[in-house]
Design a protein around this nucleic acid. Structure first.
Lengths: 154, 154
DNA sequence: CTGCCTGCAAACTCTTTGCACGAAT
DNA sequence: ATTCGTGCAAAGAGTTTGCAGGCAG
């Protein structure tokens, strides 16, 4: 999905919800889609302010749920206190697992289609209907452990 | 694992770490192992105070990591702001997935041995050594959706 | 005795919310 | 005009920490 079609999708989603296309929301959208990696609300605030210095922290926090609801952003909670977000460039219904490097603090995402099967199987045994599933692997960087340097770390 | 052997394991762990077996730590241990379900730090504080009213919130928070490090307690983070804990009665190296009911707020745990295989496979492709993995499924209660009552809900 | 441990309360981090002003439709 | 959206600052929730006194070993 190109950024221009994502932008259009965002505008359409706002209209469908009866929400207004304010300059702050648009700046937050642009800042989010300019990111290649996972980012936090705080980092997004900085980036959005670089585009429009009238953006406040509150509006970032109020806009993030709109963007995750519209599936333009995916929320990633690795249980570290703060939540991470990532642009959802492919239509985004792919099941992915996160691999978190404990040395780099980097988050890798990997397709894990079997998760959906697992969620359904297990939930139905309990009389539950699965809504979402997440799989996270925490790992150490082998290169870092051996050489003291992580190739991805810089 | 019986509670008495768990208690002994806790004492040994404290000694091994050069930590002291204070009455507060022991009360927190007893309170934790009296629980059948997942519990929060706050609930643990209440229960521990019922056994020893000198226990403070700070000590609960300082003792929880000791008990998770010693594998007597398992930490479960379902991304809801607060963390849950559960006594680890079987030696505790079993891989489990959590199924969280969005209607009941109940947490079910289910054995998921393939997670370990998955963690290893995926991590090695990235040059990482897996440390832990967690799989969480969020689901709705079918009975609750249809009848307005969840059988497990009371 | 000597440190480790404790309770208390304040600090911290991330996120949410009440309010009055401001802007989109 | 209306109504929704905004920034600001304060409030919340959960957890952590500095400190002076207390107890285990």
């Amino acid at each position: 999905m190109s950024i221009s079609s994502a932008r259009e999708k965002f505008r359409q989603f706002l209209i469908k919800r009866g929400l207004r296309a304010t300059s702050q929301r648009l700046a937050i959208f642009e800042a989010a889609f300019a990111q290649d990696e996972h980012f936090t609300a705080d980092q997004l605030l900085d980036q959005a302010r670089a585009l429009d210095d009238s953006v406040s922290r509150a509006t970032v926090y109020r806009t993030l749920p709109i963007m995750t609801d519209s599936a333009l952003l995916r929320e990633v909670d690795i249980g570290s206190g703060e939540k991470f977000y990532r642009p959802n460039r492919d239509g985004g219904h792919t099941q992915v697992a996160q691999v978190v490097c404990l040395d780099c603090d980097k988050i890798f995402e990997i397709s894990a289609p079997f998760m959906e099967w697992y969620g359904s199987t297990v939930s139905s045994k309990l009389g539950l209907a699965p809504v979402s599933q997440r799989l996270q692997v925490s790992a150490h960087c082998i290169a870092f452990r051996q050489t003291g340097t992580c190739p991805r770390h810089g």
